[in-house]
Computed example of a mutant assay.
Amino acid sequence: MSNEPTKKILPVFLLCFFLGMFGAHRFYAGKVGTGILQIITLGGLGIWALIDFIMIIIGSFTDSDGNKISEWT
């Protein structure tokens, strides 16, 4: 089994853009705990979701294993 991340940035980007307030991108990345917190706080009133969106765009968003999600397709 390889250590390559299986998550792609395009779905994370789209989920964050459309459903970032509900943490959908965090659930996709395997970060269930913080995804639930984003649901409860509505994405930190939008600030947390915005920070995640910026991190996704610059390629520093990671999955639950700490692997950077950087491949678009």
Rank of each mutant, 00 (worst) to 15 (best):
1 M>K: 14
1 M>S: 15
1 M>R: 14
2 S>M: 13
3 N>V: 07
4 E>V: 14
4 E>S: 12
4 E>L: 12
4 E>F: 11
5 P>A: 13
6 T>K: 13
7 K>W: 11
8 K>H: 07
9 I>P: 03
9 I>V: 09
9 I>G: 04
10 L>F: 02
10 L>I: 10
10 L>H: 06
10 L>P: 09
13 F>S: 00
13 F>C: 03
14 L>E: 09
14 L>P: 04
14 L>I: 00
14 L>D: 06
15 L>K: 12
15 L>V: 12
16 C>A: 15
17 F>S: 13
18 F>R: 08
18 F>C: 10
21 M>T: 15
22 F>P: 07
22 F>C: 03
23 G>H: 08
24 A>F: 12
25 H>N: 06
26 R>I: 03
26 R>W: 06
27 F>M: 13
29 A>Q: 01
29 A>M: 10
29 A>E: 07
30 G>P: 02
30 G>A: 02
30 G>Q: 01
31 K>L: 13
31 K>R: 15
33 G>R: 12
33 G>N: 10
35 G>W: 10
35 G>R: 10
36 I>E: 06
36 I>P: 02
37 L>M: 10
37 L>V: 05
37 L>I: 09
38 Q>L: 11
38 Q>H: 15
39 I>M: 15
39 I>L: 15
39 I>R: 01
39 I>S: 09
40 I>V: 15
42 L>N: 06
43 G>P: 00
43 G>M: 08
45 L>Q: 01
46 G>N: 05
46 G>T: 04
46 G>E: 06
46 G>D: 09
46 G>A: 11
47 I>F: 12
48 W>I: 09
49 A>I: 06
50 L>H: 11
51 I>S: 08
52 D>Y: 03
52 D>W: 07
53 F>D: 09
54 I>E: 13
54 I>P: 09
54 I>W: 15
54 I>C: 14
56 I>A: 00
56 I>R: 04
56 I>H: 01
56 I>E: 00
58 I>W: 03
58 I>A: 06
58 I>Q: 02
58 I>R: 04
58 I>K: 01
63 D>P: 10
64 S>Y: 09
64 S>T: 12
64 S>I: 12
65 D>K: 00
66 G>E: 00
66 G>A: 01
66 G>W: 05
66 G>P: 03
67 N>Y: 01
67 N>L: 00
67 N>S: 02
67 N>T: 06
68 K>S: 06
68 K>D: 07
69 I>F: 04
69 I>T: 02
70 S>A: 13
71 E>F: 05
72 W>D: 06
72 W>A: 02
72 W>E: 09
73 T>F: 12
